[in-house]
Amino acid sequence: MDIATIRAGKLKYLAGADLEDEDLSHSDLSKVNLAGANLSGANLAAAKLIGANLDGANLVGCQLTGTDLRANLLGANLMQADLTEADLRGANLRGANLMQARLSHTAMAGAFLSGANLMGVNLQRVDLRGADLRGANLSGANLSGTNLTQADLQGAILSNANLEEADLRDANLAGANLSGANLLCADLEGASWAGANWVGACVVGTLLEGKVEK
């Protein structure tokens, strides 16, 4: 397989390809089928992958800074990937593994993250407006000051997460596990939280202070 041809985006079918540690930075891989491909350690910085299929792909430790990843990443493994300023708006990340990934100024508005693993991830400066985080594992994640307006966090695991000053207006927290979470001064105007577990959570300075049954 010629890397130059791949970089030019001329090969549209690369499912299962082994591209470990390859330099694909600034390439255009839009609409390329990379399902199940091995891209671990690859450099995809500033590459375009709009509409690409990365279903089940291995992106462990991948360089994805500034990458346009408005793509299908269903069940992809993004462990330790660097997603600084990556564009994941509306991307399909259902069941993806993002543990130890670096996310700073990452755009994830409207992304589908249900069932994704975001344990302990720092999401402080991530735009998660309207994201689908149903059943996602966010335990111990840092979501302080994060914009989660209209996000769907139904059944999400947020135990011991830091949600200090988080913007949760109109978010859905029904059935979420918030035990031990820090919601100091979070904004929950219009949010719903029926059946959420608040054991040991700090809700000082929030609108729901005094309304929560622990």
Partner: peptide, 17 residues
Amino acid sequence: LPIAMPKIAAGLWMLDS
């Protein structure tokens, strides 16, 4: 279009690098 002022204490996400 969602029209709302940001939560004033939490605007850092808008400051990009």
